[in-house]
Computed example of a mutant assay.
Amino acid sequence: MNPKKNKPVIGISIGDINGIGVEVTIKALLDNRIQKMITPVIYAHGKVLSFYRKQLGLEDFNFMQIRHIDEVHHKKINVINVMEESPEVISGVETQEAGKMALASLDAAIKDLKENKLDGLVTAPLNKNNINSPEKRFIGHTEYLTEAFGVKNSLMFLVSEDVRVGLVTGHIPIKDVSSNISESGIKTKLDIMIKSLKDDFGIGKPRIAVLGLNPHAGEDGLLGDEEEKIIIPVIREYKDKGQLVFGPYSADGFFGMMYQKKFDGVLAMYHDQGLIPFKSLAFETGVNFTAGLPIVRTSPDHGTAYNIAGKNIADEGSMRAAIMQAYDIIRNRNDWEEESD
């Protein structure tokens, strides 16, 4: 669907109904700017939305229940029931029933994405503990969606107005990081990042900083040799091809000196190396974007936050940013496709 002709239809998988996902979704959609930009479809259950609307005193939030995506109403907030009966909402409590609903919500949205009924997906936070089962192992949204769409590689790309951070390795134990750093792995993530910065963010010639793996980027081999043997040869190869790829930088000094402002993207070697500075810099406006997929998927950069669930104190800034970022990427991809035709 071309957003120039119609508002893009964006699905929202509700995540864990006992966390803050429903609250931040409702609050974000109460923003009139968003309702003018997109047609939202929430994959959940009407009773869950009604429960939080009453509990949080958000009576201005109105929605229309539809049975199927083909019934979508472009001037309403649409809700599709993903289960016959809604699980009981117990704010702040981890339950197996909430986990089942979170997975059912995500799977229903994926089905409609595969049938080209949605232009994009925003995923509210879920809990990996209660979503996992012996039948279905769930590591994270990024890995689940990558497998669902038959893509060999994707990139966890944390983005905000001032900084964009991608990861070479994602949800793996820290003891396994070094053995998972390879020239081919870094090249794969760099290629996805470069393409995404061009296609999804409209940056013609992106500048990318690559972080080192070891403290002080290895200190010329004194503190580890991954930089000398793996990372530097990759950077040199991309420079020789005319790409604006620089590094490796020591992560602490790089972010401490705010060097991220000089680059369009930063490639970190592992999860916490990239996410700790990103969330410190952009916690309320940060967005988790899965680059490299044939569909657009974004998410707020926070978790379920059980400790504040149902208290009407959750900040919807990151969810609002995730919805608006999805809209921008959909628009950029459509513009790029039109120019390429």
Results as ranks from 00 to 15, higher is better:
E183F: 11
R207L: 00
D220P: 04
D240N: 08
G247P: 12
P233H: 01
I231G: 03
I186V: 13
V245A: 10
I231Q: 04
D191H: 14
H216E: 13
P233A: 00
L244H: 03
K229D: 09
R236P: 05
L190S: 08
L222N: 07
G221A: 06
Q243D: 03
I194K: 14
L213T: 10
E183S: 12
K189P: 07
G202M: 07
D199V: 15
L222Y: 05
F246E: 15
P206G: 07
P233V: 02
I235E: 01
L197Q: 09
I235F: 07
L213Q: 11
I230H: 02
G224F: 00
K241Y: 05
S196Q: 14
G212Q: 07
M193G: 12
F201A: 07
L211T: 06
D220E: 15
G218C: 08
A209G: 03
P215K: 10
L190K: 11
G247W: 12
I192M: 15
R207S: 09
K198V: 12
Q243I: 10
A217V: 01
L190C: 14
S196W: 14
F201P: 04
I208N: 00
F246A: 14
G224M: 02
P248T: 11
I231V: 14
K198E: 14
R207E: 09
D240A: 13
I232R: 09
D191R: 15
G221K: 01
E226Y: 02
P248N: 13
G204I: 04
L222W: 04
K198W: 06
G224I: 01
A217F: 02
H216I: 11
D220A: 13
I231R: 02
F246D: 13
G247Q: 12
D191Q: 15
D220M: 12
F246T: 15
E226R: 02
K198M: 12
D225F: 01
G247C: 13
K229A: 02
P206K: 00
K205F: 07
I194R: 14
G212W: 09
G221F: 06
L213R: 08
S196F: 13
E227H: 09
S196N: 14
V234R: 05
F246V: 10
K229Y: 04
Q243E: 15
A217G: 04
K187Y: 10
M193A: 14
E228S: 14
L222I: 04
I235L: 01
K229L: 09
P233Y: 07
F246C: 12
D200Q: 10
K241I: 03
K187M: 12
G212A: 11
P215L: 08
F246K: 13
P233F: 07
L213E: 10
G202A: 09
Y238G: 04
H216M: 12
V210Q: 00
G204H: 05
G185M: 07
V210S: 03
I230E: 06
K205W: 02
V245R: 00
D191N: 15
G218Q: 00
D240G: 01
I186E: 02
N214M: 10
